[in-house]
Nucleic acid binder design. Sequence first.
DNA 1: AGGATCATAAACAGCA
DNA 2: GTGCTGTTTATGATCC
Length: 681
Amino acid sequence: MVESASETIRSAPSGQNGVGSLSGQADGGGGAGAAGTATGGPGRDSGGREVVAGADSNGEMSPAELLHFQQQQALQVARQFLLQQASGLSSPGNNDSKQTASASAVPVSVAMMSPQMLTPQQMQQILSPSQLQALLQQQQALMLQQQQLLQMQQLQQQHLLSLQRQGLVSLQPSQASGPLQTLPQGELRPTVFPMPRGPGGERQASQTLSPAQPASRLPLAAVCPTDLPQLWKGEGAPGQPAEDSVKQEGLDLTGTAATATSFAAPPKVSPPLSHHPLPNGQPTVHTARRDSSSHEETPGSHPLYGHGECKWPGCETLCEDLGQFIKHLNTEHALDDRSTAQCRVQMQVVQQLEIQLAKESERLQAMMAHLHMRPSEPKPFSQPVTEPGPGPCSFPKVTVSADPFPDGLVHPPTSAAAPVTPLRPPGLGSASLHGGGPARRRSSDKFCSPISSELAQNHEFYKNADVRPPFTYASLIRQAILETPDRQLTLNEIYNWFTRMFAYFRRNTATWKNAVRHNLSLHKCFVRVENVKGAVWTVDEREYQKRRPPKMTGSPTLVKNMISGLSYGALNASYQAALAESSFPLLNSPGMLNPGSASSLLPLSHEDMGAPGEPLPSNGSSSPPRLSPPQYSHQVQVKEEPAEAEEDRRPGAPLGPPNPGTVGPPEDRELEEELPGEELS
DNA sequence: AGGATCATAAACAGCA
DNA sequence: GTGCTGTTTATGATCC
C-alpha cells in the first residue's frame, strides 16, 4: 500500500495519470479562440470593496491618530486570528467572505497552511481530539510566529507610508490603509528617501530600491500568494480599480499594496533588475527560471500580454493588439522608479514564495513521512517548471505560459508550488495539468467533494489562469448549482458561473457549453425543474453521490488515488477528503447515502466553497435570489420530496410529467430505492 | 480485453 | 430564420 502510494506520488510530477488529467482536450480545432462569450470577464460581479473603512481617512488622520488606529486594527486582527486559530475551528461564521478577507489579510502564511482549508466542522469530525489539539498548538505557534513577522512587516510598511506621504509611491490612500498596514507604526518614520515622484525617476528608483531596508528580510509571512495581487495594486495601473477589485473578490487585501512597496528594498537583489530589465520589463531574477521554460512562448506573443490585456502586475490595461501593448508597455512600464520598484517587489514575492514553498514542502514531507507515505520527491519545488512542456502532460490550453497569473492578480491561493510551477493548478498537483485528451479522473470525482474546497482554495487561480479545471463537467455543474442559495440555476446561469469562475471557460464556448448541456441531460443527478423563471437545473445529490463512491472504501487504490492528487496544494482538499473517507466510510457506501447522510455531507462541501471568502452565493451569476422552491433549498430535499420535485423533473424522466416521455423505462432516477449504484443510464 | 466514465461533436426537436 | 435549450447518439480516450 505504502509503496503503491509513493509510486503514484513519484510519478505524478511526470504527469501521467492520476487524478486529474487536464484534458488538454485539444478540443479539436480549438476553434475556439474566438469564443467570445467571455461572459463578463474575470469577474464581472462585485465591485471593489474597501476592506478597511478608515482607509480614506488615512490621509486626514493625524499621525498619532493614525498610529493608534493602526495599532488597534493590528491588535484586532491579531486577536481575531488568534481566536480563529484557537477556537475558530468551530466558528463556521468564519467562512464568511468578509471575515476571510480581514483574516487572510494578515496571517497570510498561516492562511496558506492546510487546516484552514477544512471547515471547522470537518476538522472536528475528521480529527481526533488529540489531533485537534496538536493542530491547535501548531497553529498557535505559527500564529505567534506570524505575529512577529507581522511586526517586522509593519516596520517596513512604515516606510511605505512615509513614502506615500511624500508622494514617492503612488499608492492611493485607500490602498495604503489596508489591514496590513494597520500595525503599530513604530517610530519608523523612516529614514526615508525623499524621492519626489515624477520625472527623473531613475535616481529615485535607485533610492527607493536599494537603500538598506531596515528589517530588510521580509518575513515570509509578509507575502503569500494570496497577497500578491494586492501587492501590485498599489503600484499598478491606476486605471483599473474596478477591475482590480473584481479580481480580488474574496480576498480584499487591498491594503497589502503598501507592503509591496514597503519591502521594495530587499537587501541586495536589485542590480539585475534596474539594469537588466528584460526587454519587456519582465522581472528577472527568479522569474528567469520560469522564463527559460515558459517564456519560450510563441514569437508573436509577449509574456506580459495576454487576453488582450497587459499582464504587468497590477496593470490590466486593455490592448487590442501586441503592437498597442508594446506601446503601452513602453510608455506605462518604462524603466522608471515605479517599474523598477515593481520588479523588485516581484522579486521579493518570488523569493518569499520560494521560501514559503520550501517550508511547506518540508512540512508536507514530514506529514507524509508521518503518514508513512514516502515523499514523492525531496524537493518538489526545486523542480524546474517544465510545465506543460513536452511531457505527456502538455496542456495545450494553458495559455498562462510564462505567467501563471495573467493579470498579475491571479495567484494560486494555496499551493506553494505555484511560484515555481506556475502552470500547475495549485491544488491539483501535476495531475491536473496533464493535458492531452479528455480529462479523466478529475479530482472531484475521486473524492467526496473536494471540488468545493479545491475550488475555494484555488478560485482565484482558475478564475484568472487559463487552465482547465481538473473537474468533470458534472462536478462543476453541480458545484455551480450548489453554490446558489436555492440550489438551482438556469442553463444560462450555469454558463455564467463557468465563465466567471474559470478563465478557461471563457473560450471555446461552443464546445463546453455543449458539454454542459450534454452533461445536464445525460446525468440523472441533474434535474430540470420548471420554475416561474423558466427551467432551472437542480442537483439530485443522491444521484450524484451514487455514482461516485464506486468502491473506494478504504481500498488501497483510494489512498493511492488521493495521494496522487496530493501535490501539496491539493493536500488540503484531498487530505480532508481522505480523512473524511476514513472517518466516514459510510460516505463511500452508496447504501449509506440516504437523504439523511447525504444532507449531512453536502453542507460541508458547500460551506467549504463559500468559506474562502468568495461571494459565491451572491455571485451565482446573477444572484437574484430565486424563488426558491422549498424543496430545493437543501440539496437533499431534492430527493426527499421526490413527490414534488421529481414530478417536474426532466422531461424525459419516466415520471416527469412535463414531458411524458414515452413510457419511460424504469430509469431508477426516480426509483430512489436502494439500488445504489447501478444505474448510470 | 472489456466495461465504465468522461469529453467532444453533432444531429435534431421544441420554443421564443 | 435564428438562437437557445434540451435530448440523444456516436466516437475516442483513459482508467481500472
